Simulated assay, not measured.
Amino acid sequence: MANDLKIIAVTCVKNEGPFLLEWIAFHQCIGVTDFLFYSNDCDDGTDTLLDALAELGHVTHLTNPAEGRNYQMEALKDAKGQNVVQDADWVWIADVDEFPNIHVGDHSFAALIDACGDPQTISLNFQFFANNDIEAFEDRPVIEQFTRSHNPDMWCGEAAVEVKSLVRQDFPLHYFGAHRPFFKPKVKKKQRPSWTDGSGRDVPHRFLVAANPRRIRRFPAAGSRAFATLNHYALRSLDSYLVKNDRGDVNRENRAFDDTYWRERNDPAWEDTSIHRYLPALKKQMNKLKAQSNIGALHDASVAAHIAKRDALLTRPEYRDMQKQLRKASKLPPQEEQMLRDLGLLEENA
C-alpha cells in the first residue's frame, strides 16, 4: 500500500482548544494529510487556534452551518460537498477524543488499509478509557495519562460496541453518519460496498445493510480488533469532564445531574498501554506544531481558558455537587451493577 494516500479527518468541535494539537499531531503521525474542522460557539480559543492552523495550511476551518441543534449531522452533510473531502482518497470521521490504535505494520492508516485488503470501508470498535481517578487537568497527552478501560470485548454488559469508520472515496455514498456511512438505497446486492471490521473480516450482514431509520452503528467487538482499535477518551480528567458538561448544557441549576454517561465509561477493569507506541513521534510532532508562528501561545491560552472555566464552575454549588457525585460514583456501569444485584451478587446498599 502506497503511503501517498490523501486521507482527510472530519470533525466537529466546541471548546476543545487544549486537546486540538494532540489530536492533529497524532493523526498526522498515522498518515492523515488533511483536516476539516467545524466549530461553533467557542469561548476558549478553539476557533482562534484553528484559524491560525488554517493560515499555516494544516487544516481547513469552517463555522458549523447548523441552524438547529443537530450540529454534527448538518456539518457532515456540508462536508460531503467540500472540495477538500471530495479530493481525498479516504475520509475519517471522528471526534477529538478518539484515537485509532493501529496494531499492524508501521501503525499507520495505510498499514491498516493494506492489512484489511483495501476495502471501501473499515469500521473500528470503540474501547472506552476510564478516568483513572485523575482529578486535575494536565497539559500533556491524553493518550499517555489514561490507561485503563473496560474489557474491550464487552461494554456495559453488551457484546456489540459502537464504531467509527474510515471510508474510501468510491463508496456508493448516500450520506455520512457520525459512526458509519450509509450507501444509496437502490444499490444492487452485488454492488454493495466491501466493508470490514478492524480484523479485516466482513462486517456482519445486518450492520452492512442497515438503513434509516434503524441506523445500526455497532457490532460485536470480540475478534474485531486484530488490526486496530479506536481508543475513546470520553471522560479525561474530572476537571475536564466538568468543563465538558458546561459545554454541553449550560443550564444545570436546579436540575439533578445524571452520572450514567460517566459510569458507563469509567470501568477500569482492563489496562492497555499499547497506544503509547505513538508517544515519541506524537510529542515530536506536537512540539513542531507549537514552534510554528503563534501556535504555541494560542495553545497555552486555550489551556488557561480551560482551567479558568473549571475554577468558575466550581464557584457554583451545582458543579461542586457534581464533582462530589462523580468522585464517589460506582465504577461499575449501571447495567452491570443491576445485573449483579439481580443475581444476588451485590448487596442493595453497595
Rank of each mutant, 00 (worst) to 15 (best):
D258C: 08
S194L: 10
A211L: 03
D202A: 15
K190Y: 13
P204K: 06
R206N: 14
D249S: 14
L242M: 14
T229A: 14
I216A: 12
D258H: 12
Y241I: 00
A234I: 13
N212K: 15
A222I: 11
S237D: 04
R201D: 11
R192F: 01
Y233P: 03
T229F: 06
N231Y: 04
R247Y: 02
R217N: 15
R217T: 10
L242D: 01
L242C: 10
A256M: 11
P204V: 08
K244G: 10
K189W: 10
H232T: 04
N245V: 01
P193C: 03
L230N: 04
A226F: 05
Y241H: 08
A228F: 07
A221R: 04
A228K: 06
N231E: 03
A221D: 04
P213C: 07
D258S: 11
S224A: 15
A234K: 09
F207Y: 13
R252E: 02
Y241E: 02
A222C: 09
R247G: 06
L230A: 01
D259S: 13
H232S: 06
A226D: 12
A211W: 00
W195K: 03
R201V: 08
L242W: 00
Y241A: 00
R214E: 15
T196G: 01
F219Q: 01
H205P: 01
P193R: 10
Q191N: 15
F227M: 02
S224H: 10
Y241C: 00
V209L: 05
A228Q: 02
S224I: 05
V243K: 01
L230P: 02
V209P: 02
Y233H: 08
D246C: 08
D239E: 12
I216W: 05
R218G: 06
Q191P: 02
R218E: 12
G248W: 03
K189C: 07
H232Q: 07
R225D: 10
L235A: 06
R215T: 09
R247L: 05
R206I: 09
G223R: 06
D259K: 05
T260Q: 12
D246P: 00
Y241M: 05
P213Q: 07
R214T: 15
V243G: 02
N254T: 10
L235F: 07
P220F: 03
A226W: 01
A234E: 09
R218S: 14
G198S: 08
D246A: 11
P204I: 03
A210N: 07
L238A: 03
E253K: 13
D197R: 04
H232N: 08
A210R: 01
H232M: 07
Y241Q: 00
K189M: 09
S194E: 13
R215K: 15
D259R: 00
P193A: 03
D246S: 11
T229V: 13
D197I: 10
D202T: 13
G200V: 03
G248Q: 07
